[in-house]
């Protein structure tokens, strides 16, 4: 339940941030830019009727705004170094699709959301934290913390914490255990099954 709730909230907050981020000038690399990309894609996806189209659109946005190889390395930890280039590519691709499918399944057009203001804070080693608060119709606001990293002229999302819960930590605990117990192919197969389940729910 925590996993699902977290991912759903991640998606929702991503949708929220677009308006606030639009005011930052284009010329200066903006730590909040990747969040804005996801947000725009969510807004566009909301207009698409078919789940397939929504998934394709969001997958492109995820590939643009997330540092998928970096996130994959963090998720698989020491095991990442033992995989070959082909396995790296397969995992990165699967991770992008899982994130996109979760967005597609969880983002329902027309759901009312309110967003607090965005706070950007510098983190060590050229990273930044982008925080926004989700005002919920019921219950207290939930904090959304994106950890973004600058790569050249671009900022990309490495991790997102919803209510303090780290998406990378959740996936790492799940995938590394699966990797140790069942092997790499089972992990990728599991991720594909997760995509299919999410898309089926999004129908």
């Amino acid at each position: 339940m925590i996993v699902k709730a977290t991912r759903m909230l991640t998606l929702i907050v991503s949708a929220c941030c677009g308006t606030a981020l639009a005011q930052v000038p284009d010329t200066v690399p903006n730590p909040a830019a990747p969040v804005e990309t996801i947000q725009s894609a969510l807004a566009a996806a909301a207009q698409q009727a078919g789940v397939g189209e929504r998934q394709a659109l969001l997958f492109e946005a995820v590939k643009q705004s997330f540092d998928l190889p970096g996130a994959s390395r963090l998720i698989l930890r020491g095991a990442w170094r033992q995989l070959n280039a082909d396995q790296h590519n397969r995992f990165v691709d699967a991770l992008g699709r899982v994130i996109a499918a979760n967005y597609a399944s969880r983002f329902k057009p027309g759901v009312a959301v309110n967003f607090g203001h965005v706070e950007v804070a510098d983190l060590p080693r050229g990273r930044a934290s982008v925080r926004t608060m989700l005002e919920r119709a019921q219950g207290s606001p939930v904090a959304f913390d994106y950890v973004v990293q600058r790569s050249g002229e671009q900022w990309r999302i490495l991790n997102v914490l919803v209510g303090g819960v780290s998406d990378i930590a959740l996936r790492s605990a799940q995938y590394t255990r699966q990797l140790n117990e069942q092997g790499f192919d089972a992990v990728v197969a599991g991720m594909q099954a997760e995509v299919e389940t999410a898309l089926a729910e999004a129908q």
């Binding site: 930890r77 020491g78 904090a143 914490l161 303090g164 819960v165 780290s166 930590a169 790492s172 605990a173």
Partner: peptide, 20 residues
């Protein structure tokens, strides 16, 4: 270190929420 890192990552959801 590996054991500690693994345990911390597994406990992160608990610890993260507890901060809230």
């Amino acid at each position: 270190f590996d054991r500690t890192a693994e345990a911390l990552i597994a406990a992160q959801p608990l610890l993260g929420r507890l901060q809230q």
